[in-house]
Design a protein around this nucleic acid. Structure first.
Lengths: 124, 124
DNA sequence: CTCGTAGTTTGACATCCATCGTACTACGAG
DNA sequence: CTCGTAGTACGATGGATGTCAAACTACGAG
């Protein structure tokens, strides 16, 4: 039932996606979003390219619908921004908003993730 | 079934509590532990006093058994250290371990939590 | 218009999670 | 030894979460 999209403002290039305003982003939500290995990997990849990536460049070991689910969690918790561009859906980290709300947080999470990856790798 | 405590070494003052080694602490686990409002509050209080606190000084709006549950999650994910001292159970942040593994992470989470608290308060 | 590609939606399912109440255990005080 | 206090263990329960497969939608290419 498509009865819940109240303010559906037709976006420039097609479907619309709901994003929380900056003021509605919650720390607990962001931490929860980042606490899943799959989603943390997505965020790391996104941060690494410093730009936009479409969904399909992520080679996640899960089905397409699960991937959709994870991107939705990231979007609903204010971690990523998604826009449709033709048939692709581009994703980008909401760096400015996150930095304004939680200064240094994303940076230390990314650093921590790198360090841990190195550490786990070294432990063969 | 109490068949999983393999190396149960009797601790100096009574019951034993299992803590993960530093090397076994995982970023995802820490983020998950911090993503619950109740547990984030506990960690903030713990950080504020820069020392040990027993469980009962936390005035959480949940039952005793739920409180036990949250402290266990924090302990099992390497966020806090707990030791029995008589009938009380003292809790402390594992600052050194967390700082060594994930430099700056705890600090930015605490800062973010403060900022958000202020922000939400200001929004009446 | 038709097709293929990219992603969504739905429904199902098993697991995990936060919460509770009640019964239980450990320890210190008296 | 007995009692009170601090916290644990044990189900139980309702709700969220991660996962999937299958059917569906939107868009560009031809």
């Amino acid at each position: 039932m498509p009865a819940q999209r109240e303010h559906k403002q037709p976006s420039p290039s097609g479907r619309s996606l709901e994003h929380p305003d900056r003021a509605d982003i919650r720390l607990e939500g962001v931490l929860h979003a980042l606490s899943d290995p799959m989603r943390l990997q997505i965020v790391r990849d996104l941060a690494a390219v410093e730009g936009e990536l479409n969904c399909s460049v992520f080679d996640l070991p899960v089905s397409k619908s699960t991937t959709t689910h994870h991107f939705r969690v990231l979007r609903e918790n204010g971690v990523v921004q998604q826009i449709y561009r033709g048939t692709a859906k581009m994703n980008a980290l909401r760096r400015d908003d996150l930095e304004a709300l939680f200064p240094g947080l994303i940076g230390s999470v990314l650093t921590a993730a790198s360090l841990q990856a190195t550490r786990l790798e070294a432990a063969s």
